[in-house]
Design a binder for these strands. Sequence first.
RNA 1: GGGCGAAUAGCUCAGCGGUUCAGAGCGCCUGCCUUACACGCAGGAUGUCGGGGGUUCGAAUCCCUCUUCGCCCACCA
Length: 880
Amino acid sequence: MAYDPQPVERAIYKRWLDAGVFQPRPDSDPYVIVIPPPNVTDILHVGHALNDTIQDVVIRFERMRGRAAEWLPGTDHAGIATQNVVEKKLAAEEGKTRFDLGREAFVARTWEYVRKTGSTIIEQLKIIGCSCDWSRQRFTLDPEYAAAVREVFVRLWEEGLIYRGHRVIHWCPHCLTALSDEEAEHHETNGNLYYIQYPLADGSGAITVATTRPETMLGDTAVAVNPEDRRARAYIGKKIRLPIVEIEIPIIADDAVDKEFGTGFVKVTPAHDANDFEIGLRHKLEMPLVMSEDGKMDGDRVPKELRGIDRFEARKKIVKLLGPLLQKTEQHHHSVRRCYRCDTVVEPRLSDQWFVKMKPLAEPVMRGYDKTEFTIVPDRWRATFENWMNNIRDWNISRQLWWGHRVPVFTCTKCKHQWADRVDPTSCPKCGGPVEQDPDVLDTWFSSWLWPFATFGWPKDTPDLRRFYPGHTLVTAPEILFFWVARMLMSGYHFMGNRAPFRTVYLHGTVRDTKHRKMSKSLGNGIDPLDVVKLFGADALRWTLIAGSSLGADVILDPNDLETTFAPGRNFANKLWNIGQFVLGQLPKTVPAIEAMDRRRLTLADRWILSRAQAMIRETTASLEQFRLDEAAKRCYEFAWNELADWYVEAVKPRLSAGKAPEAAAILAYCFDAALRLLHPVVPFITEELWQKLPGRNAAELLAVAHWPGARGELEDPVADREFSRVRTVIEQIRSIRAEYRVAPKTRLRATIVARGNDKPATFQGEMDTIARLANLDNLEILDNHGVRQGVGAHAVFGDGSELVVALEGTIDVQQECRRLSDELGRLEQQLTNLATRLTNESFVARAPKDVVAREREKEKAWRDQRDVLAGKLKSLGCS
RNA sequence: GGGCGAAUAGCUCAGCGGUUCAGAGCGCCUGCCUUACACGCAGGAUGUCGGGGGUUCGAAUCCCUCUUCGCCCACCA
């Protein structure tokens, strides 16, 4: 019967919620993760699923280790993104713009939308099993949160770290707002480089400028050359007559000009290019705007026939208008910045914006980083992070939007006094005149950068804040390292007593398709995590995401073949389910504790599986501590499937059904319990469901808050590890021989084991029944070195020269057997030769570590014994 | 123009303190409905570890270089 995850997952999640296990324990050390708040309008995509599953694995691990696990969830108001969504809806449904509604009504409308849909992603996080502390869910526009944002703004204002800047910023003509440098993304583009002649004003000729953006020539106020440029130097001080606009502008000298690029003459458009703006400042040039906010040509300088025309259309028109002045057009590969929200090509535009001085905020962070007060894993992000932080530029925080935290700057309309205020003033504190608030709102990230402490009540000194700041681990994608992580570090150091908001930043990879393209709606190559949950269950989704991503590496999934992509997780869940069906069916109502077991009654298999369980516990715990979630997941998988199910369960079946071996039941229960605990962070639903059914549980106990197992040194048993592996080898060899000689599965065979060297007959005698059953023998004889008996059969040599003979009178083909054995002998000889060259090499013996050499010697001895036995066998068979 | 990452079985990836390290899952081949599981069991096949140099007793594993992909940053218009 196959496992059906849906009903189980629903019921289990409800039990966790009802029991309140996601809220931190009151009495132990906190372990804090704050969620990267998804946009309030987001619906869950597979990138979220990866990010949140990783966090869930970490927090569940720490919760089981006894920590007061606080995973703080919430959503981000996402200024531009949300406003865009609502505007689009408004246009589609009512044919209106936000300006038709007016600011107040539009904001009200947006709130309404957010209240209705804002919990969508939160509900989806629950479906995939996220164990967030829902009692502390936050929204970046909550009133308390708004107070924190305002407090931060005012403090920075008071410290002189916020200023009004008049400069060229990135402007999105679609979103109609300024953007920060980070929000204007670089995109490589194939464009044109236009060579345009500007006639000299004195009629003595012309110079040629090269530009990718001819339309901005309307705003040119100079042409610049490098003062070192021999060719161009002669023109400095002359004037050119700007075509179309028909005004005279000077040719100036500026170091910023690259002599090598284009013609050496650069058109200078201070209002529409950040570099040109700098040049303009140095030379006190005029800075006329030639475009409106929505990217249409506009301004005093723009001829009537071009006004109102979109900038890209205008480019074509102007190129045409230039006629013969356009000398040539070259293909040009360059990068163009686009709005990270709507993908519109950003327009550099001169305007007034609020900026935060970042250097003073970045410096303490870098000092802390040097002192490893926090770390970024994987460490390879170090250079990227340091480079950005050390060259940090001021942050444009004002947005010309309506949805967001309003800039708390007020201006007296009478005396022009301007100040930032914690509460809305009614009149000017200086002259009593009427006041106006700045119309802009703050960059979304200006609120999310406070997430690790504003969520806990800052600026109030709350118990939560004292308990949960600083936090521990931040899990996110590298895409928002600058947007968010770096800024949280800065705000943390600055506002929270020089303390980093977390100790570890874990940067995981990106989910991509098989062509390594990022999954996105526009490409249509996405995977809907909820589809996966419906088809295979949340555990299967989680399994594939976790097992498939090693530290910081991208996760490649095939959106066209969900079945194959998520089969491993589904299959494993099913396997666990069936192990559970078997184990639960075998166990008596009460099972003795592992401590109470009479150890003298343990079989080799018992000792072996107990030893393997300890190894699993040790290794899994170590992997999780190092964020190697994939390793941890796979280690438990291997134990549960390959060690416990394939070998121990098979070995122990008859003892269990006979009911005469309480130890076997205890061990089975112990091992299964341990596996469920260790797997719980990765596949929480099925492990909880099965764990509930183990003997001795009461309904109040939940695996989600059960304790994490510790390895018991006394159960580690290297001797059992070695000896049981010999038993396994024997069984595997017999099966292999059976397949090779095409013996029907039902045919029972006879076999003889000759134990030699350290392989004692007792080892096999103790597991005789197991060997006979798993290899389907009706007779097994175990001899020591003195009892060698020749028989007609298939041979195998293993261990310390021990021997296996499977009786095959009648079916054996001597020729085939000779071939098989001599192949094996050849392989052994080759290995021995390799070993011998190493061991006779003086510098190897001298330089290699001692234990390595010792191991090689042991190997050599065992192989030599095997070889001798094999050679003897070949001889006795009369092989040539 | 800088910086970073990846290149290992048909596919997705582990392995990168050097000496059973050539692995896993999926796929493939051959048998099996062996009373927990066919989403399974058993037995198999498959790779000059991207190319080329180098260091070393020994290199997927370290160094150099080349090639191909991907990402990030950047004021050559």
